[in-house]
Design a protein around this nucleic acid. Structure first.
Lengths: 347, 347
DNA sequence: CCAGAAAATGTTACCGGTAACATGAAGGCT
DNA sequence: AGCCTTCATGTTACCGGTAACATTTTCTGG
């Protein structure tokens, strides 16, 4: 017999516990005839228990379908085994490799990754960040630099290890692994310049980091007294925007001989539009993308693109957090992983 | 009396609280000169407080950079305001629209969405699910049907509202919004049949739902005594796999006149390969994809594809969960949102 | 001016775990 | 046998919030 419900109507068990509850440590403990802490140990440090007790406890747990309440556990131990990553957009194929790598690394250490979608909008980012901090994860991975000073302050006050990624700043909140967007813009400009482009243009997403690249690109040419026309497309840029973007540019500047696209999607769209107009790439128009997505290789002509090692970003970010989790400081708090240009036929 | 010897090591405030802590409700309360509950109310039910008190409390909160510990709050109130969604892969552009919609709907109700990547592997899915249940979210959105009976039992035992999506089953764990994969396979087969395909083939991702579509497709033709050759590609299918897939099929079956592709990526790859070989689409070879991604429209020829209203799935799933959160039962626990075929030039 | 209701704030008791220390039993060694 | 370890388990006190009810203060109207 295990039901001690012989009491003469315990009177509504305190509203709080009105409906049938899910089992707790105490329930399991009572059933087996040990105390809560013993059940806790069965799950967390099983080799501290005698084999006999361990077996009985685990059996009871299995029987009941008990799932430990990690809210309670985390609250008490001040460790959540949870890492939260914030990305501007789930869709962005760019961050996929990063997240994949983070997840795999964390898993090996018994940590879990959950991902939040921040959007490219600052106000929403702040709100999301607040909610994330409130859940007291053991680490936060941010895509891009947090710009709101209030958010930065809260992150610091929370004393949660933070890795900012996919960008560079001399004063990160905590740790950082990224690369320089202006350097990319400059490198792309230099690349086109050396291949003879004298009338380039830009098609860019309207997010902050894409703008940094575009501005550096334009600055390179500005130093040579060449103005660079540009168009922007709203953030999750589909291929279609590349088509219309190039069409718009050609309308005002029919003689452009190169396009720096802020995403591979845009670049692919530009290729399609060029082909539709009978413009030869790369002879008449050079096209360079950003992201070096796998599908760029299958484009016609294959797309030249700026390559970022997103997987490396994920791996390093995860390593930094795991180092922190064991109380160490990572060797370097700021890592610039750089970039390269994958040269193919389109430029 | 307890220990007679009063140890003077009152210093070091109990290991647990060794390092500098982040502020808590109690800290704020003490600073302002009220009790914890008043501070709690300032944040949760501000109109219960007098304007003067409210102002003082909020000022103190702002000053300290305090962020409420939602672990504690959720534990106590038994509400987390958190919904967790599990997707097989972050990259899958398919689920993006769904997640986007879920996030937006939830946000309006003050709920937060976090996304976990389950992978296409059952064991990992179980482990992730356990960790998710442990955090006691107010709802769980699953992509696909959970197949492990143990996982199903734990989900039920946890009494957390669950929505399974992107698939159909007569006995969901709780709620469901999806569509029939076999019906899609059959419809695609019928579509090609009516357009004269008599020697079709299949290129399919190797995940469970894609297989359901492929099998139903083959079954349709089998009923007409036509065997359908097929190749599989590992789960996050890049375009390249569509190229090599079609190449492999053509090698063994040079006369195929149609391909049912399990993803738009695969279909695009097939188009590229066909073009490279000088095979005319759709005259010699009809190609139909699945997903109806936006970039299919810009392919050459534009891609015919099975369209799923992923946004609707997200919206309905979110509505179901929000209904549950307010104690109601949604009108229907099972919703079949169906599908359609976006007819374009490729088939 | 005061009873009674409404508004503002407080008290107490948890939520379900874990840290730290305490205790009892079993084993090793001289 | 006696004492010290080590192993297995228990006790106590929180972690940082919120529910439910209690109390005090302020506001009404007769």
């Amino acid at each position: 017999m295990k039901k001690p419900a012989q009491q003469p109507k315990q009177i509504a068990p305190r509203g709080r516990t009105a409906v049938a509850k899910t089992p707790t440590l105490a329930d399991i403990a009572a059933e087996v005839g040990v105390t809560k802490i013993t059940v806790s140990r069965a799950l967390n440090t099983p080799d501290q228990l005698s084999p006999a007790t361990l077996e009985k406890v685990l059996a009871a747990i299995k029987r009941s379908g008990y799932t430990p309440n990690l809210l309670a556990g985390s609250l008490s131990s001040n460790r959540s085994k949870l890492i939260v990553a914030l990305v501007p957009s789930i869709s962005g194929a760019m961050f996929t490799a990063t997240m994949q790598n983070v997840a795999e690394h964390l898993q090996q250490h018994g940590y879990q990754l959950l991902i939040g979608q921040a959007g490219y909008d600052d106000a929403r980012e702040d709100a999301l960040l607040e909610a994330v901090i409130g859940r007291r994860p053991d680490g936060i991975i941010l895509t891009g630099i947090v710009h709101s000073t209030q958010a930065r302050q809260k992150l610091r006050a929370a004393r949660i290890p933070v890795v900012e990624t996919w960008d560079l700043t001399p004063k990160p909140i905590d740790m950082l692994v990224g690369f320089s967007h202006p350097a990319i813009g400059k490198a792309a400009a230099d690349y086109l310049w050396q291949r003879g482009c004298r009338r380039p243009a830009i098609i860019s997403p309207d997010d902050r980091r894409a703008r940094l690249r575009a501005e550096a690109f334009a600055a390179f040419y500005a130093a040579k007294k060449i103005a660079v026309p540009s168009v922007e497309a709203p953030a999750p840029t589909p291929m279609g925007d590349g088509r219309t973007g190039l069409a718009a540019l050609l309308h005002d500047h029919p003689r452009i001989d190169g396009v720096f696209c802020g995403s591979d999607n845009l670049a692919l769209g530009a290729l399609v539009e060029a082909k539709a107009r009978g413009i030869f790439v790369p002879q008449q128009l050079k096209v360079i993308g950003y992201g070096d997505q796998s599908y760029g290789k299958d484009a016609d002509p294959p797309l030249t693109s700026v390559r970022i090692d997103g997987a490396a970003i994920g791996r390093i970010a995860a390593e930094m957090l795991m180092a922190r989790a064991t109380g160490q400081m990572p060797k370097k708090k700021i890592v610039d992983i750089g970039f390269s240009i994958s040269e193919r036929a389109s430029a």
